[in-house]
């Protein structure tokens, strides 16, 4: 009597966890986007209002939040392409696990240079007349 079906695409392991990650990042990005459109809309109120609110974002804590958000978007983007490959490429379902390792590898390759650049800006003093 089999108690644990094996080879099922989305039960446990890489398939299911990538789905959980895709779902959580999707919702997080969506709620961020609502707020992001609202804060950008302040350019229509006045230059002072916009620059004041953006100025309030310019601190290390928000900088770390931005880094987390970019990490979420980059994962969602690459894993989204993996989902598309699983759906449309004839060998996609067979290689969905390997594709996930590809997603995670590309994610690291993208995030390392991004974090070096972004965090060095965030943790350097604000220069110029802003």
């Amino acid at each position: 009597m089999p108690t644990k079906p094996a080879g099922t695409l989305y039960r446990g392991r890489e398939g299911q966890w990538s789905w959980v990650g895709h779902r959580i990042t999707g919702v997080v990005i969506f709620f961020f986007l609502l707020v992001h459109v609202l804060d950008t809309s302040l350019v229509r109120v006045s230059p002072e209002a916009y620059t004041a609110v953006i100025g309030a974002y310019k601190n290390p804590l928000m900088g770390l939040g931005e880094a987390g958000l970019v990490a979420a978007i980059v994962f969602h983007a690459y894993n989204g392409l993996r989902i598309i490959a699983v759906d449309f490429w004839k060998n996609g379902p067979k290689y969905q696990r390997q594709l996930l390792w590809g997603v995670l590898g590309l994610w690291v390759i993208t995030m390392v240079p991004f974090l070096i650049r972004h965090l060095s800006i965030v943790f350097s003093p604000i220069t110029g007349g802003h």
């Binding site: 800006i121 110029g128 802003h130």
Partner: peptide
């Protein structure tokens, strides 16, 4: 975020 002065450059003038 990456080009120019990165996120520090963002203000009204940048968007405009």
């Amino acid at each position: 975020l990456m080009a120019g002065d990165g996120i520090h450059a963002i203000d009204f003038g940048f968007v405009a």
